[in-house]
Simulated assay, not measured.
Amino acid sequence: MTVLGNARLVLPDGVRRGGLRVEDGLIAALTDETPDIDLGGRYVVPGFVDLHVHGGAGASYQSADPAEARRAAEFHLAHGTTTTMASLVTGDPAELRAAVAVLAGLGDVIAGIHLEGPFLAPSRCGAHDPALLRAPDPAEFGDLLARARGRLRMITVAPELPGALELIAEAAAAGVVAAVGHTDAPAAVTRSAFDAGARVATHLFNGMRPLHHREGGPVTAALTDPRVTVELINDGVHLAAETVHLAFQAAGADRVALVTDAMAAAGMGDGDYRLGVLEVQVRGGRATLAGGTSIAGSTITMADAFRRAVRDVGVPIEQAARAAALTPARVLGLAGRTGSLEEGKAADLVVLEEDLAVARVMKNGHWR
């Protein structure tokens, strides 16, 4: 048993002075008893939950190399992400099969696999190779689902493609979170996808038809549907601070999930990298396709996204914590286990300095 005390606990409904008793990897109680570890008034927030991340520390989940995948997960864990998905960009069928098979064997290193493609709209391909995009194929989806051995947790689909609504319904029935993204769909088609079972908008505003006052597209459909969680890449590159503020105002912290969309360059600095089969250059922390202007993921951590939400956007710290932990945990069906500092949940937490820099990270009751 360990008691952490003299902290500012960031709870779903506000900030409380006090401490936590940790036993057997769980939060046994919120407490005011004498601490074993005095945190000196630092903030304690729930461990971050990232729904959308491709890699970090020079490593990519696409590589089909288990050591590389572990390195990416460990990098983000050190920056506070105690629960992480492994996202794959569009690849040819053999590449995706190999990557899925490797990721399926990683155990609790990752929370699951997110297929961001290959069933995306060529007109909104972003940093996906348009030559590899294809129409929704139930056979390919079923094969990947089987190879994932219960670890496929999310798939992003452009709902206007032929067969997309049927595949969304099939994914939802199989327990896979269906998301809409990389889409040129009008609002009505997007709403049809939500009616079919889609529950997430992949990196809202990016890789989709922009909001127009005569056709709101996926943005208005997602922001106005209480069933839908919207991902936001809060890195100062993908979205302006006022746009992030707008999304929080429209959807509320219970429907916003901060994500990194981080690729291998996260934590590595400027240089040349790859995202799937495409070459990426990072200059000034901004990742773009080589020779072009399309943004190719981000170079941030969830700690960065969280800090920007509080410091640059003005989101109250408890709302930012919900968007960085509890809301994405709910998307994955994990909110009963993690995502908030509550009795009986896993002792997944991040200790933050006054400037919100990460001081220490705990996962399942163990300092990392």
Rank of each mutant, 00 (worst) to 15 (best):
G267P: 06
I295V: 12
V237G: 07
V280G: 02
G297M: 13
I295K: 06
L275A: 10
L278A: 02
G297F: 06
L326E: 03
G291Q: 11
R274T: 13
G276S: 00
T301G: 00
R322C: 15
A262I: 10
V310K: 09
G333P: 00
R308S: 02
V256I: 14
A329D: 09
G216V: 09
T229M: 03
V280C: 02
L232P: 05
H238R: 06
G297H: 12
E279N: 15
L223Q: 08
P226K: 12
A247F: 09
D272M: 13
A247H: 04
T299P: 08
G271N: 10
A266G: 04
R330C: 03
G271M: 08
H245A: 15
G216P: 14
V313N: 11
R227K: 15
P328N: 03
R286E: 15
Q319Y: 00
Y273K: 08
A324N: 07
G284L: 10
V280F: 06
T327S: 09
A335E: 14
D235H: 08
A253E: 14
D225F: 11
D261T: 12
Q281C: 11
M302H: 00
Q319R: 09
G217Q: 07
P316C: 03
V310L: 03
G269T: 01
A266L: 01
L239R: 11
L334K: 01
F306I: 10
G276Y: 07
E242Y: 13
V310H: 12
V277W: 03
V331L: 06
F306E: 05
A335Q: 11
D304I: 10
D272R: 15
V244R: 06
A320T: 01
P226D: 13
V315K: 12
A329H: 09
M302I: 09
T293L: 10
L278V: 02
E318M: 05
L332Q: 00
A251R: 07
S298C: 08
V310Y: 04
Y273E: 11
G336K: 07
L232V: 15
A309Y: 11
G216F: 09
I233G: 13
V256W: 01
R308E: 08
T299Q: 08
